[in-house]
Deep mutational scan, measured.
Amino acid sequence: KTVKFDGLQFDFDNPEKALKFALEVAKQKGAEVHIHGDEIKIE
Rank of each mutant, 00 (worst) to 15 (best):
I40C: 10
K29M: 14
G30V: 05
E43S: 11
V33S: 02
Q9F: 08
E39P: 02
P15H: 11
Q9L: 09
Q9R: 12
K29N: 11
E16L: 10
K20P: 00
G30S: 05
V33A: 04
A26Y: 05
K20F: 08
F5S: 00
E32H: 14
N14C: 15
Q28F: 10
N14T: 13
G30A: 06
I35D: 04
D6T: 04
D11W: 15
K27C: 15
L23G: 00
E43N: 08
L8A: 05
G7V: 04
V25E: 04
K17A: 14
E24G: 05
F5W: 08
P15W: 15
K17P: 01
V25R: 00
Q9G: 04
K17G: 09
G37K: 07
V25P: 01
D6C: 15
K29C: 15
E24K: 09
E16N: 06
V25M: 12
F21A: 04
I35C: 15
E39K: 04
F21K: 00
A18H: 00
F5Q: 03
K1D: 02
E39R: 04
H34R: 11
D11E: 12
H34K: 11
D6Y: 12
A18Q: 00
D13M: 08
K1L: 13
A31K: 07
N14E: 09
K17D: 15
I40L: 07
I35L: 08
D38F: 10
Q28M: 13
G30E: 05
E39A: 06
K41G: 04
P15I: 14
T2D: 01
G30I: 04
A22L: 05
D6E: 09
K20S: 09
A22V: 01
V33H: 02
H36P: 03
H34C: 15
E24N: 05
I42Y: 02
L19D: 01
A31V: 08
I40H: 03
I35G: 02
I40S: 02
G37P: 06
F5G: 01
K27A: 13
F5C: 15
D6G: 10
F21N: 02
F10N: 00
D38A: 08
E16D: 10
K41D: 06
K27Y: 10
A31N: 03
A31Q: 08
A18N: 00
K1H: 11
G30T: 03
T2H: 06
L23M: 12
G37C: 14
H36D: 12
L23I: 10
F12Y: 01
K17T: 13
F12Q: 01
K27F: 11
D6H: 09
K29Q: 10
D11F: 15
D6R: 11
V25Y: 10
P15D: 10
A18R: 00
A31R: 09
D11A: 12
V25H: 01
E43H: 10
G30N: 09
V33M: 07
K41H: 15
L8V: 07
K41N: 11
K27W: 09
K17W: 11
A31H: 08
L8W: 09
V3S: 01
A26M: 04
E43V: 14
N14Y: 03
K4D: 02
V33N: 02
I40A: 03
Q28T: 08
K29P: 03
F10M: 04
D11K: 13
Q9K: 11
E16K: 07
K17Q: 14
F21H: 03
Q9Y: 07
A31W: 15
L23P: 01
D6Q: 09
L19F: 09
A26V: 01
K41I: 15
G7Y: 05
K4C: 15
Q9M: 09
G7M: 06
K27T: 08
P15F: 15
Q9N: 07
L19K: 03
N14V: 05
P15N: 08
F5H: 02
K1F: 15
F10R: 00
A22P: 02
A18L: 03
T2A: 05
D13N: 06
E32G: 09
Q28N: 08
F12P: 00
K20W: 10
G30W: 07
A26L: 04
Q28V: 09
K4H: 11
V33L: 11
D6W: 13
Q28I: 12
G37Y: 06
N14K: 04
K4F: 14
A22H: 02
F10T: 00
E32K: 14
V25G: 00
D6I: 05
K41M: 14
E39H: 08
G30R: 07
T2E: 02
A31G: 12
H36V: 13
K20A: 13
E24L: 10
K20E: 12
K17S: 13
